[in-house]
């Protein structure tokens, strides 16, 4: 096993943790990690030696996830503005009305763009600049998604606005 490969191996637990938080489902998460590892190993030649390996892996995984979600059509238009995203996440969805008080459920209600930023910063401890690199958006957009995501989580957790639980 090459040095880079062992460095990747060391990052697998972190990739799994992030994927689990992102998808909320153990097998979907592990499939995502597997796809990410397969893709990164096949593109190892493209990795710039000395650059941040963790950010590179998370970027690959993020892009796979975006593709998956696009394929499943459960994702908003990639060009949606943050205001659109807010409207979307606040819009009632079908199912039982139930105030969400726990973080895991609240997290599921965030739109993917906000959820990924909240997790990359809050769980993975990435710098805002790293998050901008991973998500491919400007720093200002990262900050805006972080702020909106955190405020939305607070609202959901406090039950201070009607929160809708999505039914699987």
């Amino acid at each position: 096993m090459s040095t880079v490969e062992s460095q990747i191996e060391e990052l697998i637990p972190a990739l799994r943790r992030y994927a689990r938080a992102l998808t909320g489902n153990i097998s979907v998460a592990d499939d995502l990690v597997q796809d990410c590892l397969e893709r990164s190993l096949s593109r190892l030649a493209l990795w710039r030696r000395g650059s941040d390996l963790r950010a590179w892996l998370f970027t690959i995984m993020r892009n796979i996830r975006v593709n998956d979600l696009t394929r499943q059509r459960t994702r908003p238009d990639m060009t949606a503005s943050d205001e659109d995203l807010d409207r979307q996440s606040a819009a009632p969805t079908q199912g039982d009305r139930m105030v969400v008080r726990d973080l895991a459920s609240a997290l599921e209600q965030l739109v993917p763009e906000q959820r990924e930023v909240v997790l990359l910063v809050g769980l993975e401890g990435m710098s805002y600049a790293e998050v901008a690199e991973v998500t491919g958006v400007p720093l200002g957009t990262v900050m805006s998604r972080l702020k909106r995501g955190r405020d939305r989580l607070s609202h959901l957790m406090n039950g201070s606005e009607p929160a809708i639980r999505r039914v699987k």
Binding site: M1, E9, P13, R16, R20, A21, D30, L37, E38, L41
Partner: peptide, 18 residues
Amino acid sequence: FDRVLDEPVPPRLTIAAI
């Protein structure tokens, strides 16, 4: 989610398997 870090990595996700 930190508990995921302590879970053994499933064999299919090891670099060797991939």
